[in-house]
Design a binder for these strands. Structure first.
Lengths: 338, 338
DNA sequence: ATGAAAGCGCTAACAG
DNA sequence: CTGTTAGCGCTTTCAT
């Protein structure tokens, strides 16, 4: 049985569909529709369990009450937590979230934006991959609200919410140096995105500030889509070839998790043979014996700022077309010593 | 600037919109449209970067190429991993995923189904909360594909993919008993859903099979939305009041993670003072010192079976209306000894 | 082999 | 205060 339509409601109530539509959209008051009619119509709506067809509504009004969320990988706890928070707030405003994972593939990312576009999502929340700048530019040109996060695209005049990655590794490295470490390794991922670059710079700058030479051989970039065994082999090599390493800073949580596995295999004793700092907190680090210090990103706040900006833009999109300033939010990471 | 419509393409190519539509939908051949026209139209489509408006298409055809995913909490790694797998396969078939978290609240769950319905999603993947049976029944009555997972609703004739929860705790408990444990505590969550009930039954049955009496005081049910500190206090009490506990089985991964924190505080030494088994694997358990044994659910396979069933139903929904048998998939957990 | 036209369900300008 | 009506962009039947 097909669901009831506005027409059915109208005929059953002996009113026009306009009347029903107005009541549905809370414009009954403004249109001075009689209380009696309003109540009658609402009773029938309830009786038939009628819900307006959002697709038809979208076609007519041009907005879908849907926000597109594009991240690298929704199963990464960092993104999953943000997704959850965003969903929560969006839901309260009647918005739904459609998500997609780019796997850091610009082609897929472009394709996803295309798909979302054809589905007419009202706004985009994107953790950008390199090479996607033009697609985002096009969105912006069409006055569609966009917020990017996690990574910034410095060339783009777009809302963003990022964490100060440079400072994150800077304070972590400084901490290691202050506690007397001399040979600090840095393990990162082979992605030349703004955020990873800055994490490297923070590490290097701290070393320089302490007049310690940056040693290329203590720096390892693991390929993004490297297999588990390749990653392990690469890390293994790093530690075996450089037994003088007395501390290691991992630039992502999943690398740190892999690294801990490798160190365990090598029977390196953490805090005795060497110190470990991870980036992005995770239960693993808190419960590890010994616990692992981390650079923590304020996930809740990231999510909140993102969705606030989106909802703000969404609310004002039909209002004054005054060119709103873009929001540039840079949050500070914190170092959690354990 | 508004995006191009099929009309624009048609007029620019001097053909009717029908022709364009046929070409768009791969029906050009069948309609024997000349090659010249096809090529001309396609060139113009590419030139204008035209993509069909999926909303209009949906209104007309009644399908949105969107699947609604309703879980308890998308940020839970179990659900996030499944979400990722499902997204992947769905994407390849041109489907997008809209997700929502129920927070185990039947009211919210109902509301979500309502929202998805009004958005005309083509199919539902649901980790059901109690009290939602009727809403699912209604979906089924409307011949909308539904797959439920994680928890079964025994009263419903609906596709499901679940893991044998009874057997999961049974084998874990048996393992503990075989290694000579006598006072095995069971920590679970205060949710009387099929899946949690079965985990309790598996534990109890194993004890009975070994002629060991089930002791109520070694069983603790933490409230679902209990605060961290309350949960910790409750666990603390359990271990302090019952120093004879020589093993503990946690029925969820997040409870086990909290439990490990508490045991750490109590300075209990794992594998010496007592053994610990968790439910659902997690990096935390693998990397823990000592590593924690777990009952592992085959996440990949769960996701695969779910999406396969959904896509199958979606593909056959317009075909013969023969009443397809519902798929009942029960997967086996494995015990990972560490 | 191609075009005209109806209509999916809804909103909102306009007319009474 | 309420009704009529014109689309939103697309698919598809029917006609040519």
């Amino acid at each position: 049985m097909k669901p009831a339509s506005i027409k059915d409601i109208a005929s059953k109530a002996n009113v026009s569909i306009t009347t029903v539509s107005f009541i549905l959209n809370g414009k009954a008051e403004k249109m001075r529709i009689s209380k009696a009619v309003i109540e009658k119509v609402q009773a029938i709506i309830k009786e038939l369990g009628f819900t307006p067809n959002q697709v038809a509504r979208s076609l007519r009004t041009g907005n879908t009450k849907t926000i597109g969320l594009i991240v690298e990988d929704i199963s990464n706890p960092f993104f999953a937590s943000i997704a959850r928070k965003i969903e929560d707030k969006a839901y309260k405003k009647g918005y739904k979230i459609s998500y997609s994972s780019t796997e850091n593939d610009p082609v897929k990312a472009k394709d996803l934006i295309e798909m979302f576009k054809s589905r007419q999502v009202d706004a985009y929340i994107i953790a950008p991959v390199p090479g996607i700048e033009n697609d985002i530019k096009r969105l912006l040109a069409d006055k569609i609200p966009v917020v990017i996060f996690d990574r910034n695209l410095p060339d783009l005049e777009v809302n963003f919410v990022v964490v100060d990655n440079f400072n994150g590794t800077y304070i972590a490295t400084k901490h290691l140096l202050d506690s007397g470490k001399k040979n600090i390794a840095f393990v990162t991922v082979d992605l030349h995105v703004d955020q990873m670059n800055n994490r490297l710079f923070g590490y290097e700058k701290a070393l320089q500030d302490y007049n310690i030479q940056v040693r290329k051989d203590l720096y390892t970039a693991v390929k993004f889509d490297s297999s588990d065994s390749n990653t392990n082999a690469q890390l293994m090599t790093l530690f075996e070839n450089n037994p003088e390493i007395d501390a290691v800073l991992f630039s992502t949580n999943y690398l740190a998790i892999k690294g801990l596995g490798v160190l365990k295999q090598l029977k390196k004793e953490i805090n005795k043979d060497l110190s470990v700092i991870a980036y992005d907190d995770h239960d693993v680090f808190r419960l590890h014996s010994p616990p692992i210090s981390v650079v923590d990103q304020p996930i809740e706040e990231i999510a909140e700022r993102i969705i606030d900006i989106v909802l703000l833009e969404l609310a004002s999109v039909n209002k004054a077309v005054k060119n709103r300033e873009v929001s540039k939010v840079i949050l500070q990471p914190t170092f959690i010593e354990r």
